[in-house]
Amino acid sequence: MSDPEIKNAVFKILRRIAPEANLDQINSEENLREALDIDSFDYLNLMIGLHEELKVEIPESDYRSLGTLGELVRYLAGRLR
């Protein structure tokens, strides 16, 4: 799966969580929680959505290193390789 495909999958889930957000304007190194005003419940839903969509189960211990879109895409690319 290519990085743009992973990014699209992430955006698909984020659109459900933050439907009013303009995702195209997110800087890939910006903190997702702050940029989209998402709380821990939304973040958990993002992790659940990624598991359903990409079949990747992200351990909770990895959450703190997955703050930005760029970090998330790189992490998923590594797991999906």
């Binding site: 821990s40 419940f41 958990l44 992790m47 659940i48 598991h51 189960e57 992200i58 351990p59 909770e60 211990s61």
Partner: peptide, 14 residues
């Protein structure tokens, strides 16, 4: 943390 390690992502606790 120990509880969540035993659980799938959809069953984790906040």
């Amino acid at each position: 943390e120990a509880e969540n390690r035993k659980r799938s992502v959809s069953d984790r606790l906040l």
